[in-house]
Amino acid sequence: MWIVGIDEAGRGSLVGDLMIAAFAIEDSKEPLLKKIGVRDSKELSRGQREELYSELIKIGVFAVLPIPPKEIDSENINRLEERRASDLLKIVFNRLKGPRAVKAIYIDKFGELRELPRRLRDLGYRGDLVVEPKADSKYAVVSAASIIAKVIRDRRLDVLRLMYGVRGSGYPADPETVSWVMEVLNRGLRLPIIRYSWSTLEGTEAFVRKVKRPRKTLEDFMV
């Protein structure tokens, strides 16, 4: 039997996609996660996350999906994450030859789940569903998902740095990131990689409404 963990990276970002990941491992192999050093991705350096990522993809099954800023600006982020979680679990179930191969699903709580339990039942899942705050620090399988989500987000942010010259971590608490976003707005651009609903950008809306969108997005450069 398998267990699955789900977590995300970039929920509070100003620049770049929110990445949500699912990681599955056979329950008999779960102790191996702690043995190789898996823990909450926020406690690890980028180098450590990259090393663990290389190990995780050898011993488990994973899937990752993005939620771009445009969607977050127009819909409730909790509902978006819930839908992506459902999509991820469909992918994982297919790779494991069906939902009955899964014993339990652990999710780092991101809001009240309104639809996911029903969707799982419709898919034929009959195992446990554990949704808890700070699950990434309680369950190694969720920590593994958090590492995968963070590694993929970091790599995609590297691409954005090459494409658009993004500076900093991509978060609104980072002065370098905020400075870069303001420079972009002052140049009259509205890039699809920026989350415009953030309060950080209050006072710039009149300007933002006038700016144009670039023709290319991150997906055009991902091969």
Rank of each mutant, 00 (worst) to 15 (best):
K103C: 06
I77R: 02
E81C: 15
V141R: 05
V151P: 01
E183G: 11
S143I: 07
S137A: 14
E176S: 13
R161D: 01
G168Q: 05
M182Y: 15
F110M: 07
M182E: 15
V102S: 09
A63F: 14
L113K: 08
A101S: 15
A85Q: 02
P69E: 12
Y164N: 06
A85C: 09
S179K: 15
V130T: 09
E176A: 12
D154A: 00
P68H: 06
L162P: 00
D108P: 09
V102E: 07
A149R: 04
A173S: 13
R119Q: 05
I152Y: 03
A101H: 13
S137E: 14
W180H: 00
K138I: 08
K138E: 11
A173Y: 14
A63C: 14
V130Q: 08
S74T: 07
G124M: 02
N186V: 02
K134H: 08
V166W: 01
A63N: 13
E75V: 08
I77W: 01
A85V: 02
A144N: 08
I91V: 14
A101P: 04
D128F: 10
S143V: 12
K70R: 09
G98R: 10
I105K: 03
F93K: 12
R95I: 10
G188R: 01
D158C: 00
G170W: 12
F93L: 08
L116C: 04
A63G: 14
P99I: 01
I67K: 10
R118V: 13
R114S: 08
E112T: 13
L157I: 06
S137R: 15
L80G: 06
P117N: 04
G127D: 11
R84L: 14
R190A: 10
R187C: 06
D73Q: 07
P66W: 08
A85D: 02
L189Y: 10
G98Q: 09
I152E: 11
V166H: 04
I148R: 05
G127T: 13
A140R: 12
V102A: 06
R83E: 15
I107W: 06
D154P: 07
R161V: 13
V166C: 01
Y125T: 01
S146G: 14
I67W: 13
L129F: 11
K90I: 08
R114F: 04
E112W: 01
Y125N: 07
R126E: 15
L113P: 05
G98I: 09
N76D: 15
L191Q: 12
I67S: 09
L160H: 00
P68E: 14
L80H: 04
